[in-house]
Amino acid sequence: MTDITTENYADVNARAIDGWNAQGWEWGTPLSHEEYLDARQGEWRMLLTPTKPVPPAWYPSDLSGLRVLGLACGGGQQMPIFAALGARCTVFDYTPSQLESERMVAEREGYEIEIVRGDMSKPLPFADGEFDLIFHPVSNCYIEEVKPLWRECHRILKPGGRLLAGLDNGFGYAFDDAEERVVCSLPFDPLKNPDHMAALDLVEDGIQFSHTLEEQIRGQLQAGFQLVDCYEDTYGEGRLHDLNIPTFWATYAVKAG
């Protein structure tokens, strides 16, 4: 594909992630049967960012019967845990192999899940106030505009509903692959900056975008959310990680009741 636009870059990303999964991508490796059984017994953890588990206080004390949306959350990692804890789960993702992993785990463990293929840069295909909780691991670095997504998340949550989000803070996009030199300006936007597009390998990287604190966190506030808690995280490897330089945020926000 030579002419990449706002209308088709999601397809580039889906093909890239399918390729990563074919090579055993960490974030596309489904939960094992043993891990699912552990979750049923109360032994579990989930990640919004690469290394730090989400604090238990961020979850409702009882997930039984709650409607949970895994937003760009395919791969069979988090939704099986929510299902093991009694939630009624929907997963929304655009990458076929990520959704296939969700289907495989659900069939293996015998629970029901609604699987929806869709592009989160577009209006979400869900009713107002449909969900109690949205779980959104780091993934909106693959869409150009995030503020419309926060407005959609606010719309589809019930009053008092929770948005748990992992966010790339954009810092890493300024560096070369070795994370030793600053080589790119910010914001990183390949659709607007030819130098940024030239820096990407479409097969290995897909199309990615940096987003600011104003887009990521202020954008949630502008959409009507109240921020409850947050933390920072690193890649988990590489020079920036070794220097303890955070490259991710996680946020816990609620829709006012």
Rank of each mutant, 00 (worst) to 15 (best):
V116R: 06
V116C: 03
R117I: 05
R117M: 15
R117S: 13
G118F: 03
D119A: 07
D119W: 03
M120E: 04
K122E: 15
P123F: 07
L124G: 08
L124P: 05
P125R: 07
F126G: 06
D128R: 14
D128I: 08
D128H: 13
D128K: 14
E130T: 02
E130N: 00
D132L: 01
I134M: 05
I134Y: 04
I134W: 02
F135V: 08
H136F: 14
H136I: 00
P137R: 05
P137T: 05
N140C: 15
N140D: 13
C141P: 00
Y142I: 08
Y142R: 08
I143C: 01
E144H: 11
P148D: 07
W150R: 04
R151T: 12
E152M: 07
C153G: 05
H154R: 14
H154E: 13
R155N: 07
R155A: 09
P159L: 01
P159N: 02
P159W: 06
P159Y: 07
G161Y: 07
G161R: 08
R162C: 02
R162Q: 05
R162N: 02
L164P: 11
A165K: 03
L167D: 02
D168P: 05
N169I: 09
G170D: 06
G170K: 09
F171W: 13
G172A: 14
Y173E: 04
D176V: 08
D177R: 12
D177E: 14
D177V: 00
E179K: 03
E180G: 13
E180I: 01
R181C: 08
R181F: 08
V182A: 11
S185Q: 15
L186Y: 06
P187K: 04
P187Q: 03
P190R: 04
P190S: 02
K192L: 07
K192W: 01
K192Q: 14
K192T: 10
P194H: 01
D195M: 12
H196G: 03
M197C: 11
M197W: 04
A198D: 13
A199G: 11
A199E: 12
L200V: 01
L202H: 07
V203P: 00
V203A: 15
V203S: 10
E204Q: 13
E204D: 12
E204Y: 00
D205L: 06
D205R: 07
G206E: 01
G206S: 02
G206F: 00
G206R: 02
I207Y: 00
I207P: 01
I207E: 06
Q208T: 11
Q208C: 12
F209I: 05
F209E: 12
F209D: 13
S210M: 08
S210Q: 10
H211M: 09
H211A: 13
T212R: 10
L213Y: 15
L213N: 00
L213F: 15
E214T: 12
E215Q: 15
E215H: 10
Q216R: 13
I217G: 08
I217L: 15
R218C: 09
G219K: 06
